[in-house]
Simulated scan of single mutants.
Amino acid sequence: MINLIKLSVGTEGIEDLAAWQQTPRARASDGLPRHVTRMWPKRETEILDGGSIYWVIKGAIQCRQPIVRLDEVIGGDGIRRCAIVLKPGLIPVAASLKRPFQGWRYLKPEDAPIDLDPARASEQPLPAELSVALAEIGVL
C-alpha cells in the first residue's frame, strides 16, 4: 500500500477543504469527492490497496482521505487526466510540516502522520497557523 500527498492550494483550513469538496465541480458523477490531476499514478494498484491522500494545508499535513478509485477524465482540451475519487469526510492527522511542491507525491505509510484520536473528533479544529507552529516545535 502507498499513499499520495497533495497541497490543498488556497485552502485556509480543513473546513475550507471540506466546503470545496461539497461543490459540484469537486464531485464525481456518483457524488463522491474527487481531485483531478494531470498525471496518472504509475503505482495505481498499491494506491487502491488501502491508500489515502494526505492534504497539506498552510505548510502542514493536516488531514487525509481514503482513496476509493481512479477515474479517467478527458478535459475540454482533449487531454487525459486522472480523477482521484475519495471517501467523503476528512480524517484529521497530527500536523506534520511539509515544504511546498508541485503536483502530488507518493507517501510511504511509515512516513505518514498518525490519525488524531477519534475521541477528539468533536473538538473544534485548531487554526492552520497554530497547527503549523505546534508542529514546528514538535508538540503535535
Rank of each mutant, 00 (worst) to 15 (best):
M1L: 13
I2Y: 08
N3T: 04
N3P: 05
L7Q: 15
V9W: 02
V9T: 12
T11N: 10
I14V: 08
E15N: 05
D16C: 09
A19L: 04
W20S: 09
Q22T: 00
A26G: 08
D30N: 10
G31Q: 02
P33N: 12
R34A: 13
H35K: 10
V36N: 08
T37F: 02
M39N: 07
T45Q: 10
G51W: 00
G51S: 04
W55V: 06
W55R: 09
W55C: 09
V56K: 06
I57A: 00
Q62V: 08
R64G: 02
R64C: 12
Q65N: 14
P66G: 11
R69S: 13
R69K: 15
E72Q: 15
V73M: 05
I74S: 02
D77F: 09
R81M: 15
C82Q: 08
L86V: 05
L90M: 13
I91K: 07
P92V: 00
A94N: 07
L97T: 11
R99I: 10
Q102N: 15
W104K: 06
L107P: 02
L107T: 03
A112V: 11
A119I: 10
E123T: 07
E123I: 05
Q124I: 15
P125W: 05
L126K: 09
L126Q: 08
E129I: 04
S131Q: 13
S131F: 01
V132S: 00
V132I: 12
E136Q: 03
